[in-house]
């Protein structure tokens, strides 16, 4: 655990000086950090707990909408609305989980798509609530301590803090009782129950935490975009991207989702600027290559190799 916190500390230090070194690559860095945070949050449920959700865009949308509408309609500062969004997302996660956790495996994944699609339709059609299909602007933001929240540097630090908090949460949970409960439920619900763990409660807790964290990142994303439309932010595609990031990086590992974000967003950006209209094709090929040759995800595969080497060494004596 200390080792992981040390790693996080080093990364934070790198992050803090990043804007000074690469002042012209902040947007892409913000994307990486947000996706790292979302994928790590997703992984609490999807990786550690084994419940693959394909509806996490709902929580991103929730966070973004709370911040945008709170600011534009009620003049509420983003830190309040983000806290409200997190609470609301946790409540939604509870209800959602209560509704669908009797389902297992692919059935659960399919049900999350259905719930998320219904939420998307609500966000588009209920104009009184969300401003409807034409979207919402964030025109002004408060300036705490004179910091301009619209500046990319401030947004970068917000995203950095978000990603760091999420990773720290996972580090703590990985060694806590809750973390073992999560894994026990993932491996075998019936045996977990026999060991005195209530699978449904464990899954609900994981879903609520995952949802709350995701929505905070969603709030930051709302500030970054400054203009949000329900189609884009509640899209199934975004849900899939979040899950994809975690899985490519390595499910159920501490650093996997973050590595996945770095690889996928980094590669996506590189392909976008070099291959023009063929870039999505190359991106698809990349995904296929990773799946074929690194089926456990990048970090998952590395960890497996290390363990193998360890055993090999021991065997040699």
């Amino acid at each position: 655990m200390t080792k992981h916190f040390l790693g996080l500390g080093v990364l934070l230090a790198v992050g803090i000086v990043y804007p000074a070194i690469f002042p012209n690559y902040l947007t892409i860095a913000i994307s990486v950090l947000l996706f790292a945070g979302w994928a790590t949050s997703w992984d609490l449920l999807g990786g550690w707990n084994g419940q693959v959700s394909l509806g996490h865009a709902s929580f991103v949308g929730l966070g973004a909408y709370f911040v945008a509408i709170g600011q534009s309609r009620f003049g509420l500062a983003p830190w309040w609305t983000m806290a409200m969004a997190a609470a609301f997302a946790a409540a939604l996660g509870y209800f959602w989980g209560w509704l669908t956790f009797s389902l297992r495996g692919p059935y659960f994944s399919l049900s999350t798509i259905a719930v998320a699609e219904i939420l998307r339709l609500v966000a588009i059609n209920e104009e009184w609530l969300t401003g409807g299909a034409t979207g919402v602007f964030i025109a002004t933001l408060p300036e705490p301590f004179g910091i301009d929240l619209f500046s990319r540097v401030a947004q970068f630090y917000m995203a950095l803090a978000f990603a760091a908090v999420v990773v720290a949460t996972v580090i703590v949970i990985s060694r806590a009782r809750f973390g073992y409960q999560l894994r026990a439920v993932r491996e075998d619900e019936d045996s977990a129950m026999a060991a005195g763990i209530d699978p449904t409660t464990t899954k609900l807790k994981a879903f609520m935490l995952s949802a709350a964290l995701t929505s905070i990142g969603g709030g930051i994303y709302g500030i970054v975009l400054a203009f949000i439309e329900p189609h884009v932010i509640f899209a199934l595609l975004l849900s899939v991207q979040i899950a994809l990031t975690a899985i490519i990086g390595g499910r159920g590992t501490i650093w996997g989702p973050a590595v996945g974000a770095l690889v996928l967003i980094g590669a996506g950006e590189m392909f976008r600027t070099t291959f023009a209209e063929a870039n999505m094709l190359i991106y698809g090929i990349l995904i296929l290559v990773v799946v074929l040759f690194v089926p456990r995800g990048i970090v998952g595969e590395l960890a497996r190799r290390r363990i193998r080497r360890l055993y090999a060494k021991r065997a040699q004596g």
Partner: peptide, 8 residues
């Protein structure tokens, strides 16, 4: 994931 890649 593989089918997602194929889809793209």
């Amino acid at each position: 994931l593989a089918t997602l890649g194929i889809s793209l």
